[in-house]
């Protein structure tokens, strides 16, 4: 930020409002706004209390019982937490989720940033067309996309046909443990890049053009402009995309359910799919076990997100 300020707010820029202090904290001279603030957060706080927090507390309570259809619930304390913690398949599924997130989140953001920068250079009409087009995959339901990609990955499918042109043997995409998850990552990125692109485009359009103009006058190249202006000023939006991207990626469910059903040898068994599978399990107390596993996933997600917040939140611009 400081490098940017000295660069852009230099005499070359007429900065009419005196260099907007992006994200700097408001000086406390106006005092507190308790009344207004509480009125503004009240609807959200109440709705979350009734429909999210109370159910969560209730789930935590239920997870200390052994629930079965045939007998009365029996209090067992934290037994199920111990079972989940000791289950190697639960931890493997967390690693699968993390691997999937690492495969898709950074790639998705980079693709979307390139596309958004490209759309920004287009004429008005071309830009309208592209803004609608990139969003279209999000309109297709996951079920339809899964079925289509299963076809494309078949032995005699489109993907292997293209590999054949490159003189490369057919790959058994969805049945090879080392290829299955990357193969699922492709439709995963395809389904979500439109939303990410529009979010980044909205962010890019919010950066005043004169920042770039003065940088260009100072002789800054493309990469300098990218790393000194675009990325620092998109930091708020990028933090959002990282956190939501990770939480959504680890909670991936429908794609592997339809495309591979968790296989081969659990290579695509994401946490939610594992929870779902153990819910359907015929063992008694499957309900209690899967409920507890989903609460453990909540703890894992919260911890990872905390790390992301800490890492990105290196200066005080982000956090309230």
């Amino acid at each position: 930020m400081t490098a940017l300020d000295s660069r852009v707010a230099a005499p070359a820029d007429p900065a009419p409002d005196g260099a907007p202090p992006h994200g700097r904290r408001r000086p406390a001279r106006h005092g507190r706004d308790n009344r207004t603030a509480y009125l503004m957060i009240a609807p959200m706080v109440v709705l979350l209390a009734v429909f999210v927090m109370w159910p969560l507390v209730y789930s935590l309570y239920l997870s200390t019982f052994k629930i079965s259809f045939y007998t009365e619930p029996e209090f067992v304390g934290l037994d199920f937490y111990q079972y989940v913690l000791e289950s190697p398949r639960f931890w493997e599924s967390i690693w699968v989720g993390l691997y999937y997130a690492v495969l898709t989140v950074p790639t998705g953001i980079v693709i979307a940033l390139l596309l958004a920068s490209f759309i920004k250079t287009l004429s008005r009409r071309a830009a309208s067309y592209m803004k609608t087009t990139v969003y279209l995959p999000a309109v297709v339901s996951t079920v339809v996309a899964s079925v289509l990609f299963v076809f494309m990955y078949q032995d005699d499918g489109v993907v292997n046909a293209m590999l054949g042109v490159l003189n490369h043997g057919p790959v058994n995409w969805l049945n090879d443990p080392s290829y299955a998850l990357p193969a699922i990552a492709v439709p995963g990125i395809w389904l979500s890049f439109g939303v990410t692109t529009l979010i980044l485009l909205a962010g890019l359009l919010d950066i005043p053009e004169n920042y770039y103009e003065s940088a260009q006058l100072d002789g800054a190249g493309f990469f300098q402009r990218l790393f000194r202006i675009t990325i620092p000023l998109l930091k708020n939006v990028l933090l959002y995309l990282l956190v939501t991207g990770f939480t959504l990626a680890i909670q991936l469910f429908e794609l592997p359910l339809i495309m591979t059903n968790g296989g081969p040898v659990d290579a695509t068994m994401t946490p939610n799919l594992y929870i779902f599978a153990s819910f359907r399990d015929l063992t008694p107390y499957a309900t209690s076990f899967s409920l507890t596993a989903s609460l453990m996933l909540f703890a894992v997600l919260g911890a990872i997100s905390l790390v992301i917040f800490r890492l990105v939140n290196s200066d005080k611009a982000i956090d309230g």
Binding site: T244, Q251, F279, L291, L297
Partner: peptide
């Protein structure tokens, strides 16, 4: 944001 839907679906 971090609460999996499965964890609170029933409740």
């Amino acid at each position: 944001m971090f609460i999996p839907a499965m964890a609170i679906l029933l409740t």
